[in-house]
Write a protein that binds this DNA or RNA. Structure first.
Lengths: 340, 340
DNA sequence: TTGTAGGCGTTATCAT
DNA sequence: ATGATAACGCCTACAA
């Protein structure tokens, strides 16, 4: 069963091809009668427009390219909510998502744009100095970044407000009556890659601690594994004083750290305060559930898609760059010590 | 900077458009000299063919549609290795992946095929009686299933060999000297959805136990959560006898079960044998690392893509259906009791 | 309100 | 070995 074309629809409805096109697009007034006949023909033949032909003629593909960091980055687990949300938002605007993995680097970008595979590109996992940015900035199709580089080069960016996350975390520790906070850092790989949030979080944590008059200490890097967490926890407890407070900004390290503490008989919520930076879903899986600042991947993604489509509808005039920050939320669970 | 077309390349190289096309496709002998000139022009203009135009003219999109079960299914965590592998295999064959979420149900399928958005479709998360199958079987584009329905309707399927996984698990329990095995089942939602592997695993487990002369008991359903695992573990220990052996086929429940046992002071590997059905990656994260039968999502996906491209190259003659099973692998870690 | 016709950028069939 | 030249299916001025 070969697919029907708009020509078949036109013949069946006794109108011209262009009328069929205008009925579908609504870009021209059509009499109720014709519209009904055309629609009937469309339904009867279950006509659907050919995507390639439409893209060729209209210069719009109705596709959003999504470049995801498989292989490269560490924390792939956290990817799914991003992908899911992006796909959902795209469909809501009658677009599809073309998924491209990051290991092609800059080539993925040039291919997406060069072959006119999509109308816009979402770039994830942005490094502080990301080699893809110059290419993205010069690209024929609009690009939006999830993550914030040192120099966005006029590209719109969306990300969690990591400085605010740091402030919330420190505030929680202060509220629990600690006079010292130990920040367990990210993995060596993440640091080496130059993930921009590392610096953003750490600087804000130092400042917030200073402002609150509590001592700030750091253990870094922290490998994301049982052993890595054990080592980091040992060091943290060594320098953390008699009533330690631990901040764990690396989302995937949070469960390991809680586990490593428990193993040592240092119970989070009884002997030590732990504040993790992770999704609520992850926070609820630890024993005991960890006090967390949420990373809100869904909000971040939705915001990005919203900006992207707004830009697309506006006919692309003026690359409306700008940094958009999504507010994190702190939820006190069972790993915050009661203030003395 | 508008994109260049093959016409621009042709002019620059002083040849006709068709020659440019043939240089790119290699479907016609070209003299070394012309080829060089054309290639130089292509490089100079960084020419890339327009995907829509190519699809329109050649009837091939170089895109694979991937329908993934976001939202619907429970175990979305296990999705990433599938998606990653599928994307990788697609790129290796110069194809891209269009990601479509499952919540549109059958509409996603008809859209992908009807608009000629892709050359082939990968359908995941197949239910025993899947409403999409009739549509898939009648589709204009080839469809491959990851998962095995009761009636594949001539569609090719690939999945883990769940019966073999059950046999491996039971064999491990038998080797550890147990005379009784408790199978913790899947979640109520997974059962209700009619996930086909549920039955496949359970039947084989019953048979293998009978064949080995060990008693088979079941706890089902098991909710995937701390509380669900606690309840299931309580029941399992109640009926499991003095030296219990637990089989946990629901991949995402494995960590919860290990944790629930540990909480009760019933240590896996010391007081109880636990065999999980999950990826090696998950098995290594539990404390202690759990003896597991691997689910091999990468092998399953790679096999599916291999079949798909073989079929695509063969010009689609004869819908080469057939069920392909990927062999699981048992790895003994620290939760198998020593035989008495 | 509707029809006509040219063009979007490739591929592939004729010719030469 | 290479060049014209029809499709491919849709969109959108331009006409009527």
């Amino acid at each position: 069963m070969a697919a029907f074309t708009s020509r078949d629809v036109a013949r069946l409805a006794g109108v011209s091809q262009s009328t069929v096109s205008y009925v579908m697009s609504g870009r021209r007034p059509i009499s109720a009668d014709t519209r009904k006949r055309v629609q009937a023909a469309i339904d009867q033949l279950t006509y659907q427009p050919n995507a390639g032909a439409r893209a060729l003629a209209s210069q719009r593909t109705q596709v959003v390219g999504l470049v995801v960091p498989f292989g490269t980055a560490g924390d792939t687990t956290a990817l799914l909510p991003f992908i899911e949300t992006i796909a959902g938002c795209a469909r809501a605007e009658d677009h599809d998502v073309l998924l491209v993995t990051d290991n092609e680097g800059t080539a993925a970008l040039t291919r997406l744009a060069g072959r006119s595979l999509c109308d816009a590109i979402v770039l994830m996992n942005i490094a502080a100095a990301d080699a893809r940015l110059p290419v993205a900035a010069a690209s024929r199709v609009p690009v939006i970044l999830i993550g914030i580089p040192d120099d966005p080069q006029g590209l719109p960016c969306v990300d969690l407000d990591y400085p605010e996350a740091a402030r919330l975390s420190v505030a929680e520790v202060v509220a629990a009556g600690h006079d010292r906070v130990v920040v367990l850092g990210w993995s060596a790989e993440e640091i080496a890659r130059g993930a921009n949030y590392v610096g953003r979080f750490e600087r804000a944590a130092v400042e917030a601690a200073a402002a609150a008059g509590v001592e700030h200490l750091a253990v870094s890097p922290v490998e994301v594994s049982r052993e890595g967490a054990r080592a980091a926890v040992a060091e943290a407890l060594r320098i953390g004083g008699p009533r330690p407070a631990l901040l764990v900004p690396a989302s995937s390290a949070v469960p390991w750290v809680v586990q490593a503490l428990t193993e040592r008989g240092v119970l989070p919520g009884r002997d030590v305060t732990v504040v993790g930076l992770c999704t609520d879903a992850v926070a609820m899986t630890t024993v005991p559930p960890v006090t967390n600042v949420s990373t809100e991947p869904r909000d971040v993604s939705a915001r990005a898609m919203q900006i992207l489509f707004r830009h697309l509808e506006r006919g692309r005039e003026g690359p409306a760059g700008g940094v958009e920050l999504v507010a994190p939320r702190l939820t006190r669970r069972e790993t915050t010590l009661a203030a003395p």
